[in-house]
Simulated assay, not measured.
Amino acid sequence: MAYVNVPKDLSKVKTKVMFNLTKRQLICFGSGALVGVPLFFLLKSYISTSTASLCMVLVMLPFFLFAMYEKNGQPFEKVIHNYVQVRFVRPKHRPYQTDNFYAVLDRQYHLDKEVQRIVCKNDTKKKADPRRAPGDRGRHRTGEADG
């Protein structure tokens, strides 16, 4: 019995137009042929056939690259665009800044320690107030003699 494998992700399936090629591939191969073949016939009369065919292949190679190369679902021109953006257009140094919960807790802990240090320093100053007499405990006198 004949069977056909069906891919699980149908979004990656591309529609084939002619000769089992996509529309994009047909356009790129056709434009490569439109540039390369006339170049071959023009160069053949001036240089040897093998050199003219080598020049034709080198001229047509970018067209084939644009037709066939694909990385992460992106065609070659998008890959080149992203590379140019990252390499030349955007700044090289992109600082990574975050305000994570641990850093907030750490800052709060240090601030609490500083406040406690200031409060403790002020408490020790209150105990040694120079305006009080050594025997004065801060009680009000009632006018009676202490007995």
Results as ranks from 00 to 15, higher is better:
D9R: 05
F41T: 15
H110K: 13
Y109L: 13
Y69D: 03
A133N: 10
E144Y: 09
K23R: 12
V119I: 09
T49N: 06
K121P: 02
S50I: 12
Q108C: 07
P38D: 10
V59W: 01
L58H: 01
F101P: 00
E144Q: 05
V4G: 03
G36M: 12
A33D: 07
K113H: 06
T124Y: 04
M60L: 01
I118Y: 05
N20V: 13
E77R: 12
S45W: 03
D99G: 10
S53A: 06
L10W: 00
S31T: 08
C55A: 15
D123Q: 10
R137F: 05
Y46L: 11
Y102A: 09
Q116H: 12
V4K: 14
P95L: 00
K127Q: 11
V37W: 04
D129Y: 05
N122P: 01
R90L: 14
I80W: 08
P75Q: 03
Y102M: 08
P7S: 13
L21F: 15
K8R: 02
K127F: 09
F76N: 02
V17D: 06
L61Q: 02
R141K: 11
K23Y: 12
K71A: 05
G32F: 10
T15K: 15
F66N: 07
V4W: 07
D112M: 15
R87Y: 06
D146E: 13
L21V: 09
D112V: 11
N72H: 06
I47Q: 01
V59H: 00
V13C: 03
R131Q: 00
P95G: 00
F66Q: 06
R132T: 06
N100R: 00
T49K: 07
L42T: 08
T51C: 00
K78G: 14
V57W: 07
V57S: 10
D112C: 15
F29K: 06
M60A: 14
R139I: 07
F19S: 03
Q97F: 03
Q85M: 13
L105V: 00
L34G: 10
N100C: 05
V35R: 05
A103C: 07
Y69S: 01
L43G: 07
V37R: 04
Q97T: 13
K12T: 09
H140K: 02
